[in-house]
Amino acid sequence: MENLYIHIFLLFLVVITSVFAVSHFRIIRGAILLGGVSFFVSIILFMLKAPMAAMFELSVCAGLITVIFISVISITNPPYIDQRKQNRISMWKKIVALLSIILVCGVCIYIIDEKNIAFIPVMKNASAAAMTTKDSIWNMRHVDLIGQALILLTGIFAVVVLFKKGKDEK
């Protein structure tokens, strides 16, 4: 039962940190808090027996993405107070967003409680033999690797195009 309390505590931290990350006044602190969210998510992934995913989450999301965010914010140097006041969303839009959130939460709770979902179906092929992550990557989901390579190449191509200097630019 102690394990359950650790899970609850970590989930509480994830939710609180993400709320602060989206609602903080200064964007750079929001980006740092996002790194904190990734850190707590990676601890949860370790506890949910997904160590490789946790390692990726910790190194890429908590490390690389936070660095990219901070560098983008420091390059663009956003004006905090004036810009924030000018770009405020009207109250009725916030109310509509809040109502839609309450609706989605209600639907989730209804599905879980009324439909009595207490299991996740297991894939037939996957339940046959004990398999490691390495086996599943290279034998079962090897087509995903091609997709990943294509996505990375797309990203490289996009970065090259976006940072290319124009003809009239010096």
Partner: peptide
């Protein structure tokens, strides 16, 4: 009880997220 399969999806998703 099959975390090794979902780890693939998580890794793919992290890569997409970074791109």
């Amino acid at each position: 009880s099959k975390p090794e399969i979902t780890q693939n999806f998580i890794i793919v998703m992290i890569i997409v997220e970074v791109v």
